[in-house]
């Protein structure tokens, strides 16, 4: 194995916009690749989370039981956990369902808004938790990168800082809803 930084990205309840923004780093990805190996991500093929990675970027809020279990596993196998984007940082749009009960949500999605096969799925689709919450309400988070999505420049800055062993100072670089 190389001695490059081990990097992972995780996608919870989000729109994948943060991952798109990550890809928008464009040709600078090549520079990053000199410093880090991407071991696990929706963008690569590995199906299991590696034993230990140095940095994990998490996109999305913790909404379902699957998210809840996954984030704890990820936390256990990550040195520096980064909440990437507003959904991970604030629950953002996924959190907009919180004032409503889960049952009402299912009713709306699978009965009122469905024309065929009106039924609430019990298999395959992971059950929703009572509240959709930011990642740091479930596990400890080391770096917060707000933004919807954070710009490619912001993500590039965060990664460069982390890969060079510094903690990124985001003051003046990004904001909620950016």
């Amino acid at each position: 194995m190389s001695n490059k930084t081990k990097l992972a990205t995780v996608w919870l309840d989000g729109c994948s916009g943060c991952h798109m923004s990550f890809l928008d780093i464009d040709e600078r990805l090549v520079d990053l690749a000199q410093l880090a190996d991407l071991l696990y991500s929706p963008l690569v093929d590995h199906k299991t989370f590696p034993d230990m990675v140095d940095v994990t970027l998490v996109e999305g809020a913790v909404s379902s039981e699957e998210d809840y279990e996954k984030i704890q596993k990820v936390r256990a196998h990550t040195k520096i956990l980064v909440s990437l984007g507003d959904c991970a940082v604030t629950a953002n749009v996924p959190g907009m369902r919180n004032p409503f009960k889960v049952a009402a949500l299912y009713e709306r999605a699978y009965h009122e808004n469905a024309q065929l096969n009106q039924q609430i799925p019990v298999q395959v689709i992971p059950p929703l938790r009572e509240m959709s919450v930011p990642v740091h309400q479930v596990v400890a988070v080391d770096v917060f990168v707000p933004g919807c999505p954070p710009s490619a420049d912001t993500i590039f800055f965060v990664l460069t800082e982390l890969l060079n062993g510094r903690k990124p100072d985001l003051t003046g670089r990004t904001r909620f809803g950016a």
Partner: peptide
């Protein structure tokens, strides 16, 4: 939002109340 940006606030430290 602007003040959160100005003060370098990166996340909310207390649980959301989620009122209806």
């Amino acid at each position: 939002q602007g003040l959160a940006y100005e003060l370098g606030m990166t996340h909310v430290g207390v649980p959301y109340l989620n009122p209806s």
